[in-house]
Computed example of a mutant assay.
Amino acid sequence: MERSRVAVAGASGLIGSALVRSLVADGHEVVRLVRRAARSRDEVRWDPEGQYVDGAGLAGCDAVVNLAGAGVGDRRWTDAYKKTLRDSRVLGTAALAQAVARLPEPPRVFVSGSAIGYYGDTGDRAVTEEAPPGDGFLPSLCVEWEAAAAAAREAGVRTVCVRTGLVVARGGGAWGRLFPLFTAGLGGRMGDGSQYWSFISLHDEVAAIRHLIDTEGLSGPFNLTAPQPLTNREITAAMGRILHRPTLFAVPAPVLRLALGEMAQDVLGSARVLPARLVESGFSFTFPGIEEALRAALQEQPGV
């Protein structure tokens, strides 16, 4: 796209920081939403849980991207942390969508985060964006999260919800924890390993978001996952091959449930999610396979 002004919420997170680097490298102006007082023109004050956004700071933005939210895997899912997970996503998205809708000249696109947790446990069944939401905490959270973007859509702003899979990267997320374990020779399958993991390389995640920003006419939900989900057993084997380490330390399902509580269902559950709409829109993956994605992650420089 031509040089644009893009606002990013969640700019310090794994995906957000990579998106910012990509945009800046291509000469775009990036405005970061921050929770403290803004110190420069490229910062906008906001308080997601308090549903406050300094809307004036969004003036002139061509796109607004919302990737903010407390980490799903950061803590056990106590009732209090479930509230934190919900409020950081639903309230923040609603506040940002409303701020976008109130602008005299709104951006041409609002990209809002979501996750493949929307579908719940799909077992061996492959699902696309047409599938209904599943049951449980994560699906209900994703439904609310996506619905919170309604104000922007109703104001006529092209609105996209990105249902992101497991991002393969060293700098954070699930793989940020897996790489050290597997490098130390302590990695292995989780449960019986038959559950599907729908992954995507960090490079392709960022490229897909930029594709959705740039391509007029694209709106609604998009699955951001590689074309061929694999089982946890297959991914474990790939990790062993790429890192040249044994993968003998399987973690039984009961141990995971004891250690992680309700969050274990996200690790043991199966999500066979296909990026149907993304592929149909003309997007091309750079690292479609797990070994390619793993190698790309290993080449990342610290902080990149």
Rank of each mutant, 00 (worst) to 15 (best):
A169M: 02
V100K: 13
L256C: 12
F182Q: 11
V304A: 14
C161H: 14
S284G: 10
A149W: 09
R177C: 03
V44Y: 09
G173E: 08
L278Y: 10
E146G: 13
L248A: 05
A80F: 06
Y196L: 08
L141P: 06
L91R: 15
G69D: 06
S284I: 11
P252Q: 10
S194K: 15
E129N: 03
A115S: 15
R75H: 14
Q98R: 15
T159R: 14
T122L: 07
R5A: 02
P227F: 00
I213F: 04
T164V: 14
L67H: 07
G176I: 07
Q51C: 09
G282Y: 09
R233D: 12
T286R: 15
L218C: 11
R86Q: 13
P246Q: 02
V72F: 07
L23W: 11
Q195P: 08
E43K: 03
F287K: 00
R245F: 06
A63S: 11
I209L: 14
P48F: 01
F285T: 03
T236R: 01
L91P: 00
A293S: 14
P132L: 12
R86V: 10
V64C: 03
Q51D: 01
W197L: 15
E2P: 10
E280D: 13
L67F: 01
H203N: 06
A296R: 10
K83V: 11
P254C: 05
L91M: 03
V109K: 15
R86C: 06
Y119G: 05
V168Y: 06
I200S: 00
P288K: 04
P107L: 10
G16R: 10
H203D: 14
G193M: 03
C161N: 15
A18G: 07
P133D: 11
A276P: 02
G69Y: 06
A238V: 05
V8Y: 05
P288N: 02
A147S: 15
V100I: 13
E234Q: 15
G13K: 01
E130V: 06
S201F: 00
A150S: 13
A207F: 00
D87G: 07
Q299C: 08
D42C: 06
R5N: 04
R241K: 11
Y119T: 07
T236P: 00
H203A: 08
G176R: 08
T159V: 12
S112R: 01
A237W: 02
R245A: 05
V64L: 01
N223S: 03
D87C: 04
V157D: 12
G60E: 05
L96S: 07
G171H: 09
E129H: 03
Q98A: 13
S281M: 04
H28L: 09
H244A: 08
G60I: 08
L258H: 08
P180Y: 12
V167S: 00
Q265T: 15
V157E: 12
E144W: 08
H211P: 09
I235A: 11
S114H: 10
I200E: 00
P133C: 12
G172E: 03
P221M: 12
G185T: 10
G193T: 07
D42L: 04
R277Y: 02
S201T: 06
G117V: 12
A97I: 05
A147V: 09
G57P: 09
M263G: 12
G188W: 14
G171T: 10
G303F: 03
P132T: 13
R76V: 05
A63Y: 07
